[in-house]
């Protein structure tokens, strides 16, 4: 397309593309069977909820500490009602079903997703790497109230982030929002003081250690229960803080990793650098 293409033609093209999208969408939905939004039981992926709330069968070797995951594959077990804070030894035991899917049943997915985030942040650092540019004119410092206030707020925000990812298996939240909340607190520190310089190598090594902890927890599952990222700890009573096996451990690792990673990314983007190579 040449550079003198008329504006109008481009807008008409875009509008027709959007119109085709809308028409195709509604044509696809007309084909849906009647009452598709009312037929509840058929649409929900019941397997995960059933597995999560199903009472565990007899363990193969109940005396061993690592025998929790060595369960036979159960195709169909009768449903027994769950009582909050009473029922014990569920298969996963997390009160939050989304958490049990993210960390336990699809934990390998989550490992890949954390890897994608690591690669993206590494790309940002590789692109924006350089030595800090000298500022020509003097800029105004933030006021004392801003400086002190962000420091006080950071401690509270940090505690809140830790709360979110420690309680990920009981309440909404988990490692990803918890880590992001911590990174937001560090962003506040950047706003409070001009030229705030956190320990970049420390952040990166902290993040690497958290990632290694994730993989090591997975390997413990591999060597004790014969599958990678298997739940090797006792699951306890549903609703207690010490329940759901290794879900809380993995979410703590994810939370620290995401928090350190995003803080390092904000640090890289906020310092104005100049190129060292061309």
């Amino acid at each position: 397309m040449r550079s003198d293409t008329p504006e109008l033609f481009k807008k008409i093209f875009a509008l027709s593309a959007v119109a085709i999208l809308i028409v195709g969408f509604f044509l696809a939905f007309i084909e849906m069977p009647k009452g598709w939004s009312v037929n509840v039981n058929g649409r929900v992926s019941r397997l995960y909820i059933l597995k999560n709330v199903r009472t565990a069968t007899k363990l193969l070797d109940s005396g061993s500490f690592f025998a929790k995951g060595m369960k036979p594959l159960r195709t169909d077990v009768a449903y027994t009602p769950i009582e909050f804070k009473k029922t014990a030894n569920l298969e996963d035991g997390a009160a939050n079903v989304v958490t049990s899917i993210v960390v336990d049943y699809r934990g390998f997915d989550t490992l890949g997703e954390v890897t994608v985030l690591f690669l993206a942040v590494s790309g940002v650092m590789m692109l924006l790497f350089g030595k800090p540019r000298k500022e020509k004119k003097k800029k105004t410092e933030p006021s004392l109230i801003m400086y002190v206030g962000t420091r006080i707020a950071f401690s509270i925000i940090f505690l809140f982030g830790i709360y979110i990812f420690v309680h990920g298996h009981l309440t909404p939240g988990g490692g990803f929002p918890g880590g992001t909340v911590i990174a937001s607190g560090i962003l506040g520190l950047f706003l409070g003081k001009r030229g705030y310089n956190p320990n970049h190598a420390g952040l990166k090594s902290f993040e690497a250690l958290s990632g290694i902890a994730f993989v090591i927890i997975g390997l413990i599952g591999l060597f004790s229960v014969n599958s990678f990222l298997a739940n090797f700890l006792p699951t306890g009573i549903v609703g207690n803080l010490y329940s759901a096996g290794f879900v809380a451990l993995i979410y703590i690792a994810i939370g620290m990793k995401v928090g350190a990673e995003l803080a390092a990314m904000v640090d890289t983007m906020i310092t104005d650098t100049e190129e060292e190579w061309s």
Partner: peptide, 27 residues
């Protein structure tokens, strides 16, 4: 009825993503 997704979107989409855009715009 998806509070997990809601809290994540509020922290990331509305908070950090906008901040990163503004930082990049400053550069």
């Amino acid at each position: 009825q998806a509070p997990d997704v809601a809290i994540t979107e509020a922290a990331i989409g509305a908070g950090l993503s906008t901040a990163i855009f503004v930082i990049a715009l400053k550069r």
